[in-house]
Amino acid sequence: MGVDPDSLRGRGAQMEALAELERRQIQILTRITELELSHLPQHFSDSLSISTPDENSETNPANSTTTTEARLSAILSSNGVRDFSFKRVPSDYYDRPLEFRRDCLGAPSIDHLCKSIVLVNTQAPSNVIDCSDHNNSKYYVVVVQYVARFNAETVKNFLYALNNGKIPKKKFNMRLAPEETSLKLTGFEHNGVTCIGMKTDIPVILDEAIVKLDPNFFWLGGGDIDLKLGIRTSEFINFVRPFIVNCSGA
């Protein structure tokens, strides 16, 4: 069976229109971010490198990071977050000790270095398949310190209590989600996962130990592997609205 030339031309025009729409969206997001940053204190705006991608990301991989940074900056700024900073780290960042990472970011201590992990409830009832009910979600993102030891049992107990014991405790079994599931839900690769701008509205759990940090400014993934986001804890809480749970041990 032959292919209709008119159909092919129509598909080509549609793809071109979509590409143009994406380019314009990136330009708009970048412009919004530039305007927002003009009102930020100088020491924060200096750390944000905002530029419009003008080359294919395959020939210039840094464009991916720049686009992510611009998009997430726009989201944060438009939601009232002012005290945040993005920094790009060396390619061997995760091969080096926490002290090296602390110095790369200018963090006050290694305690201020945190990560976001996606958990799946492997024993959730058959009708719980997504994140529509934040009190009883199939998936959760937990933000914990690198120096801490995550305790899934405390999250299980918290969720059981959150649902007033109406759901049997055996229906909560929190485990690390596969990387491909995490990528599909968040849109971010391993070591780049962040709670800002996720593809899915996944409920977030913030470890109580992070709330107690002094100063109250912590670092986590910035959407790309070599991009990190520092943010004022109080502003993170006001925007993300996480559950605050004591879910780790030093």
Rank of each mutant, 00 (worst) to 15 (best):
A161D: 07
V143M: 14
T194F: 03
K199V: 03
T154L: 03
V142D: 07
A107D: 07
I26N: 02
T68K: 13
A161I: 08
I32N: 12
F243H: 06
G230N: 10
P178H: 08
G187P: 15
L119Q: 01
N163K: 04
P178T: 09
F84I: 00
F86R: 05
S137F: 06
F158P: 02
T68N: 14
K166M: 03
Q25T: 13
I196Y: 08
L21M: 05
P90V: 12
Q145M: 06
D130R: 01
N238F: 04
V141H: 01
H190S: 12
V128N: 09
H190D: 04
A62T: 05
G223C: 10
M1A: 05
F44R: 09
R175F: 00
P90I: 11
V155E: 03
G2L: 02
M1Y: 11
L105C: 08
N164L: 11
R71M: 14
R149N: 15
T66L: 11
N163L: 02
P5G: 07
C104A: 13
K169N: 01
G10N: 14
A148E: 05
N246W: 02
Q42D: 15
P41Y: 03
P90W: 05
I32S: 12
I196C: 09
P215H: 08
G197P: 06
L35N: 10
V204H: 03
H134G: 10
S132A: 15
N136G: 07
R96A: 07
V143L: 10
F158C: 11
A19K: 13
L229H: 10
K156T: 14
H134R: 08
T194I: 01
D111V: 01
K170P: 01
D4S: 06
G2A: 10
T200A: 02
E20I: 07
K87R: 14
V193Y: 13
L220C: 13
C247F: 13
I32G: 06
S51E: 13
M1V: 11
L98V: 07
R23L: 12
I202R: 04
N163F: 01
K138M: 05
T68F: 08
T67E: 11
I167K: 13
S137P: 01
F84E: 02
P90K: 09
G12H: 11
T122P: 02
L229N: 04
Q145H: 03
C247V: 08
T154H: 02
E153T: 05
T122A: 06
A124H: 00
V211K: 02
F158W: 12
L213W: 00
N136L: 15
V204K: 01
E69G: 11
F150T: 00
F217I: 09
A19E: 14
E36T: 11
R23H: 09
I231T: 01
P125I: 00
D92R: 04
S38A: 15
M1G: 13
K184L: 15
Y94W: 12
F243E: 04
